[in-house]
Structure formats: C-alpha cells, structure tokens
Computed example of a mutant assay.
Amino acid sequence: MLLFKEFTFDSAHFLPNVPEGHKCKEMHGHTYRLRVWVEGPLHPQLGWVMDFADLKKVVKPVVESLDHKCLNNLPDLENPTCERIAVYIWDKVKPQLPLLVRVELHETPTSGVIYDGK
C-alpha cells in the first residue's frame, strides 16, 4: 500500500546556469509543495503502513532546513533546480526512512517533479 504525507515550505533561489536574460537567473521564490510517499504492507494489528507522526518526524527537519532559505547557499545543493531539490530531499530522508519510494515536489501549482531514487 502507498501512503503519503504532504509538506510546504517557502524558499528563494536562482539558477546560475541558465542563459542570460532567462527570468530564473534572477533571485526569486516559490512556495514548494512536497509529497513524500512510502510503500509497505498493512500492519496486521495496527492497520497502517506506518504512523503519520513517525513519517513527519523524519521529513520535518529536512523541510525546516529548506524553509525560508536561499537554496543557493546550501553546501550540498548546487544549481538548485526543482529536480535537484527533489534529489537532495531524497538523499536526506531515505537513510532514515527505508520505506520511501517517491518524492514529489511542486515548484508551482502546475509544475513539479517526481523522483524515485533512479
């Protein structure tokens, strides 16, 4: 069964590698919507894959490290595109959350990426 929990955070960034004149070369911000997916069997007695509170305990510190930050200043996040931010989140969360199967990150209400570790 798939289970997900959603988080939001606000961050600024700029994309240094885009061509001159591209609007994303300038500093700008987004309200990101993050959905973290885990997959596993239903626990026979508890009736869940995992406790949402336990999922939140793992993901929330990562989200807090991104919230209201300039993502270009993070040492492990060079050229912070939506794709690279999703990989960054995956790399921070996966070691503590073995059931993680997908990170879905929306940069705007209509644009985003899905990363599954591949």
Rank of each mutant, 00 (worst) to 15 (best):
V58Y: 03
K69G: 01
L66V: 00
Q45F: 09
V63A: 01
L66Y: 00
S65E: 07
V87H: 13
G47E: 09
L66M: 00
K60C: 02
V62T: 04
H28G: 10
K94F: 09
P19Q: 06
C70G: 00
A86G: 05
P80S: 14
C24D: 09
Q96T: 13
P80T: 01
D91V: 05
K69E: 12
V103G: 02
R35S: 15
F52L: 13
P98S: 14
L34R: 08
N72M: 07
E83W: 06
N17S: 05
P95R: 15
G21W: 13
W48L: 10
Q96I: 01
V63W: 06
V103L: 02
K69W: 03
N73M: 03
K69M: 05
L15K: 03
G40W: 11
L74D: 01
D67E: 01
C82M: 03
P41C: 05
W48H: 08
I85S: 02
K25I: 09
R84V: 03
K56N: 04
L46K: 14
G21I: 13
R33E: 11
D54E: 12
L15T: 08
K60S: 07
N17L: 15
L71S: 04
P44A: 07
V58H: 03
T81A: 01
P98Y: 12
E83K: 10
N17F: 06
H13R: 15
H22W: 06
H22K: 05
K94P: 09
L100K: 02
V58E: 02
L99S: 08
T81C: 00
F52G: 03
M27V: 15
R35N: 12
M50L: 12
L66A: 01
P19Y: 11
V59K: 04
K94D: 02
V87K: 11
V93G: 02
D76N: 14
V103H: 00
Q45A: 11
S65R: 12
W37M: 10
D54C: 09
S65T: 03
G21F: 09
N72G: 01
V93E: 07
H30S: 09
E83L: 07
P19V: 14
D67S: 02
E78M: 05
V36M: 04
I89K: 10
L66F: 00
